[in-house]
Each structure stands twice: as C-alpha cells, then as structure tokens.
C-alpha cells in the first residue's frame, strides 16, 4: 500500500466508524421495536439499551425502553427510562402518561411532605417546555422590553415615550417569569442528583454501612435526591422528607 493511500485510509476510518455507529443505533432501535411488537420483551430491552449506549439519545427510544422494561416486570428500570425520556423532552406527553402508569406499581407509596402548593404549581408549568424553549422566550421578551425602554430613553416623541415605558415594564415582568420557568425546567432537566431505586428493595439506613440502623425499606421505582456520596453509599432524601443512606448499587441516577 502506498503511503498516501495509508494516510487517506487513516483519515477515512473514523469517518466510517462514525457513520457505522450512526446506522447502528438506528438499526438497533428498529430491532427493539420489532422485538417488542413480537412480545420478545427481554430482547427489546437489549436492543434499546444497545441503541442508547452510543453518543446519541432519543426520548422516544427511552420511552420504548421503559415500556419494554415494564413488560419484563422491572418497574425501577421502567420508571428510570420514562424519567430519562422526560428529561430530554419535558413536554413529552406519552412518556409522562407511561411514567404515571408505571408509578402505580411502586410498592412504597410516599406522601410528599412540606411543599407549598405554589411551588409545585410553578414546577409543573416549568415542565411544560424545555429549559431551552423557556430561555428563548425569556430573551424574546427581554429584548422587546429593552427596545421599548430604548424608545422611552430616546424620547423621539411624547406618545412613543409613553407607550415605550409601559410596554417595557410589561415585557420585563413577563421575561423574568419566563426566566424563572427556564431555571425550574433546567433544574428538572439537568439535575444530576435525581435518582431512581432500581433494586427490588433498598434499606434506608441511618449511617453509611451495615452498622447503620434501618429507617425504612423502599421499593424499586422510588425517586430520590442524592445529597452526598461516600464510597459505595449515597445519602438520599425521599419525597416524605426522610433522609438516609442507601447502597450505591441500589439506585441509578436519571
């Protein structure tokens, strides 16, 4: 082989691998769908997992993976997959519906404690769009407010100045509401400390290690917030405000 040919091959190889990978995840998704429709759920899980192990992600693939996991009776992994789908696209109604359906099967029902209704209402509105969409809306309103204030500042005429001030205030208030939603959606979409219990049972203990006393047992599918990590143990906060330690292997971060 000529040296020039060798270098050309060397250059084309990663490009080829890239395309090969591109084809791979799509074909595995198709295979997963086919297996699911043939009621071969374990195979469907395998194909979807393989398709999602590449650099590409898809909310639809996560949604289908969740359905396949549910069919194999793995509630924890099913809920984790639906959560991942919603993390990619908070307004994905199918995934939200499937998540709610899967959550019915969680054995440990935790009653949410403390939260003020307005915060949860705020959070639910924030999840209607992605943080990116909220951010764009914020900038649209923010720049409009800036333009309106500019009209007021330039004092081109009395009428424009009057309208500019009022429009500027309205746009500014609306823009900061959108900013709040963007922040709330971003924390839901990109919070790396949210996790799902994936093992059948996990004992929440008072201290990391087997010396700690059991506070309560939680079943698979329960959502927790990781507050601290210490070796093979995670300190988590449950919805009912219980804080304790669980083995790292019993949960998976969303």
């Amino acid at each position: 082989m000529k040296l020039s040919n060798f270098f050309i091959s060397l250059f084309l190889l990663p490009l080829g691998l890239l395309f090969a990978q591109d084809e791979d995840y799509k074909s595995n998704f198709e295979k997963g769908l086919k297996a699911y429709n043939n009621k071969e759920y374990a195979s469907a899980v395998k194909y979807y997992e393989t398709s999602l192990s590449t650099a590409y992600r898809s909310p639809e693939a996560y949604n289908n993976l969740g359905l396949a996991y549910f069919k194999t009776a793995d509630i924890g992994k099913a809920i984790l997959s639906f959560e991942r789908a919603l993390r990619m696209r908070p307004g994905y109604t199918s995934a939200r519906k499937n998540l709610k359906a899967a959550q019915q099967y969680i054995d440990t029902k935790l009653k949410k404690s403390g939260g003020f209704w307005l915060f949860s209402f705020w959070g639910s509105i924030g999840l209607m769009l992605t943080s990116f969409s909220w951010s764009l809306l914020f900038f649209l309103l923010f720049f409009s407010a800036s333009a309106a204030f500019l009209l007021r500042y330039l004092k081109l005429n009395e009428r424009l100045s009057f309208v500019g001030l009022r429009l500027g205030i309205i746009f500014l208030v609306l823009s900061f509401i959108c900013f709040g939603f963007a922040r709330s959606a971003a924390s839901a979409q990109f919070d790396k400390n949210l996790a799902i219990i994936t093992s059948v049972r996990a004992g929440v203990r008072t201290a990391p290690g087997l010396d700690g006393e059991d506070i309560m047992i939680v079943s698979s599918g329960v959502k927790v917030k990781v507050q601290e990590e210490m070796g093979d143990w995670f300190k988590v906060r449950l919805d009912n405000a219980v804080v304790g330690w669980v083995p790292a292997k019993t949960l998976e971060k969303i």
Partner: peptide
C-alpha cells in the same frame, strides 16, 4: 391501578 400504558413509538428523534 387505572392508568394504562401507551404504545411503543415507531419513529425516534436522535440527538447528541
């Protein structure tokens, strides 16, 4: 247990 699951989706949008 009243809520049911949806169907698997046949088209997926992929992104990095």
């Amino acid at each position: 247990i009243t809520l049911s699951f949806g169907e698997a989706v046949s088209k997926a949008n992929w992104r990095k």
